[in-house]
Simulated assay, not measured.
Amino acid sequence: MIVVMKSGAARKEREAVTKRIRELGYTPHIIHGTTRDVIGAVGDERAKSVLQTLESMPGVESVVPILQPYKLASKEVKKESSVVPVSDTVAIGGKEIVVMAGPCSVENEAQIIESALAVKAAGAQMLRGGAFKPRTSPYSFQGLEEEGLKLLAKARDLTGLPFVTEVIDPESVDLVASYADMLQIGARNSQNFALLRKVGQIKKPILLKRGMSMTIQEFLMSAEYIMSEGNQSVILCERGIRTFETATRNTLDLAAVPVLKAKTHLPVVIDPSHATGNYHYIAPMSYAAVAAGADGLIIEVHPDPEHASSDGPQSLKPKKFAALMEKLRLFAEAADRTL
């Protein structure tokens, strides 16, 4: 159920409502809107009729049931699109399309610094790079772990770019959060519910990637796990789904962008690198993503992809990335967005 507060409702009225929600055995989640606040009451669906009594409280306009199984992520809770701040200079979900770029994995200081300088010069607003790498083979490069986080932080200090990096298990969440500006949940962990709950308890934005065999509803239910723990700063990332097609690494589901926009208030970004697995296709898929309404892109860029420790074939060289960004501005303008 959601409790819709009246426009201009006093803070003490909102606090009284949240207190009563707790007394009834539910967990309140306050969602701030442009004109009024709503309070999501999450808990046992079987006894939700008791929440209707909240309509008689001062400051309450109405109590409305949420029909979707994903309560807090639903557009029923918040009609306007959410804007998720990442740093003092970067927010995802507004008019500006945010581009996150950098190598798949942090390999050494020279590589990540060169990458960070290159993507900033091209116009990227964020740096991406993996310190912990979940790989299909146990013999593949697994990342530099905390040393990689330190190198990403050094690149941030040098360039001013906030960075996003992946967290792969609940035990390392606090460590990664102590360095990163935004934490990424990869496709393989998109239904790791212990991990989702853990990142829901921190105060850092979360980039949640869609699992390769996930339906849209399952994707949004994973977002719900994070939000139900109190962290409302979730960004959804479509990175391709597994189909019968073998010409690309995955099949980029661009239709997911307008579908998600219709169902949720959360920002949506596209990862054309993991979706296609081939650097030749990244630029056209990036342009198409902007046309479809994406709020951002996460793109792999490496100064020497032929010798990359991971995902070299899908990484752009800095010059190609700069050319992509230049043309992307035209698509952003056509979509009434900025870059």
Rank of each mutant, 00 (worst) to 15 (best):
T215V: 12
K209C: 02
M182R: 05
R210T: 07
A180R: 00
A194R: 13
N192A: 10
N192E: 10
M182D: 02
R188L: 11
K204A: 09
S178L: 06
A180N: 00
N192T: 09
L183E: 01
A194V: 12
S178H: 06
I202M: 08
A177D: 04
Y179N: 00
F193G: 09
M214F: 15
K198A: 07
Y179T: 00
I206G: 06
R197E: 15
M182F: 03
L195P: 08
Q191E: 13
K198Q: 09
L208W: 08
L183T: 02
R210I: 05
N192V: 10
D181E: 09
L208N: 06
Q201D: 13
L175C: 12
I185K: 00
I206N: 07
K203D: 15
A177G: 07
I206S: 05
T215D: 09
Y179M: 01
M182V: 09
R197C: 15
A187R: 04
S213L: 10
R210L: 06
S190C: 10
K203P: 02
A180Q: 00
L196G: 11
Q184L: 03
L195R: 08
M212T: 14
D181Q: 10
T215K: 11
M182T: 06
L196E: 10
P205I: 03
L183N: 01
S190T: 08
G200Q: 07
G211V: 03
L196C: 12
M214Q: 15
N192S: 12
Y179P: 00
N189L: 05
F193C: 10
